[in-house]
């Protein structure tokens, strides 16, 4: 793969600083679950979705092995922290036990399992649930079905999903008019690519018409969302570019993110003012930091030859 070394150096710098910012937040006590968290989490998005995203970023740093020793140590520390927060998997297990068709425990667990943080009872439970017709009958958006299929693949469960059919049912699978994309659809697109390629580990995971379609239009989508300062979505699009093999965009995206990044490493989600309260700022912008780490990690990993994954 041809690599623009300036892009790689910018990506590495942005990602490393975002990782440090996440770690500084953790050390300041941000991102912890409330002490009274019980299994019936009213709003998993608030309670532990961010922890799962933290685990995603840290586990990819460890999986791809392209970070320096300092960033690797930081990623390990963040995973330990997040694993401790979910009580070494017990919290995910108990939630999955009670809500058999809920997918967030599985999806969160997959990020830990990727880095070999395992919970035997959880895996036995997931394996069992996979044999229920009810679990597969849940009505979900096609890109969400891909999220579940990829999570089960990462955990190593025995299912053999029909990837082609799952891909064909998504927005991307239809290769629609590229100018009809809106902000929410763009996020669905990025996640379809993440799950089909297992976050860049399988660049061939996109079926060919979709692969060509993404290469054709990704530069357009990146351009328009950079223009209006949607840094979070732009970072997701840069991650997509790294997931599909030879990059389709140039320096524009990474240089814009580097310019938008604050001195302390905070990567703002958009061009709105950042809340002066550090706790609020952490809550508002932690997702963008995670995306920045993910995008930088996959960008470096693909440029350096990629990470083979067991099939």
């Amino acid at each position: 793969m041809t690599a623009d070394t300036r892009v790689l150096s910018t990506a590495q710098h942005v990602g490393s600083r975002a990782l440090d910012w996440l770690d500084a937040g953790r050390r300041n006590g941000f991102g912890r679950l409330p002490d009274n968290t019980v299994v019936d989490l009213a709003d998993p998005n608030d309670a532990y979705k961010p922890l799962g995203e933290l685990a995603l970023a840290a586990s990819l740093v460890l999986r791809d092995g392209v970070a320096g020793p300092g960033d690797t140590r930081t990623a390990r520390g963040l995973l330990d922290f997040a694993w401790d927060q979910v009580r070494a998997g017990d919290l995910l297990y108990e939630r999955q036990l009670r809500h058999l068709t809920t997918t967030d425990p599985l999806e969160t667990y997959a990020h830990f399992a990727r880095a070999d943080y395992r919970h035997a009872a959880m895996e036995e439970l997931l394996d069992s649930l996979g044999r229920l017709r009810a679990v597969h009958a849940v009505e979900a958006e096609p890109n969400r079905r891909l999220a579940v299929a990829n999570a089960r693949r990462i955990v190593g469960l025995a299912d053999r999903p029909d990837w082609a059919a799952l891909a064909a049912a998504t927005w991307l699978g239809a290769t629609p008019e590229p100018w009809a994309v809106d902000w929410m659809t763009a996020y669905r697109i990025t996640h379809t690519v993440f799950h089909l390629t297992d976050w860049g580990a399988r660049p061939d995971g996109l079926p060919e018409p979709v692969h060509a379609y993404v290469r054709d239009w990704l530069p357009v989508w990146l351009d328009v969302w950079l223009e209006i300062g949607q840094w979070d979505l732009a970072a997701e699009l840069l991650a997509v570019d790294a997931c599909i093999g030879e990059p389709a965009t140039g320096r524009q995206g990474w240089e814009a993110l580097a310019t938008a990044q604050h001195a302390d490493g905070l990567l703002p989600r958009d061009s709105e003012p950042v809340d002066a309260d550090p706790a609020h700022a952490f809550r508002d912008h932690q997702h963008t930091a995670v995306v920045g780490v993910v995008a930088a990690t996959i960008t470096l990993s693909r440029a350096l030859g990629g990470t083979p994954v067991a099939t």
Binding site: W179, V181, D216, W217, P219, V220, W221, E227
Partner: peptide, 20 residues
């Protein structure tokens, strides 16, 4: 033609319909 097509899609998304 791909650059023309990208320019068209970009102009559509930017609501610059005359350029599109």
């Amino acid at each position: 033609t791909l650059d023309l097509a990208r320019g068209t899609a970009r102009s559509m998304l930017r609501r610059d319909l005359r350029t599109a």
